[in-house]
Amino acid sequence: MNQAEFVNTVLPLKDKVFRLAKRLLISIDEAEDATQDLFLKLWKNKNKLSEYRSVEAFAMTMTKNYCLDQLKAKRSNNLSLVHSNYKDNNLSLERSIELKDCVSRVHQLMTDLPEKQKIIMQLRDIENFEFEEIGKILDLQPTAVRVALSRARKTIREQLIKQQNYGIS
């Protein structure tokens, strides 16, 4: 794989890699560092990349492993993972305040999900991957992916309703 091929096939994945990294690492700075690191690794291994059937799936697997390693290292350092520097990007003005509030709450709820469900939801609902691809990335059966995803979706919705009701009472 030469430089032009790399720029055309691998570089466009940078947003997906960044978003998954941010989902797992939460901090924007760390996600940016992770993305740069990961692309440096991909660049160094660019000659081996053509051996993989899906470079995209490979890049996502790499991202997942890298971020989980980062998290593990941090946990062993006894640092707590409290970041709140996510930005609540503005929705269109006509949307109700209630909805805006709800949308930013989805972010928090997704952050609280178990890692596996978090990754699956990120890949499916945000990046629109097929179940087979997600299975390949996470080394899971597609049915297992479905089960975890269903659980994640239900959790988020239930939590939203719960918070809504607390808000009223």
């Binding site: 947003d15 960044f18 993305t35 740069q36 709800c102 709450r105 989805v106 945000i126 919705r157």
Partner: peptide, 24 residues
């Protein structure tokens, strides 16, 4: 409404871009 919040959030997240440069 909850679903709307979820789907809006997904859309919003998908629009996020990596803005730093990647040194090759």
């Amino acid at each position: 409404l909850e679903y709307q919040a979820m789907f809006n959030y997904f859309d919003e997240s998908n629009a996020e871009r990596f803005t730093k440069s990647i040194p090759l």
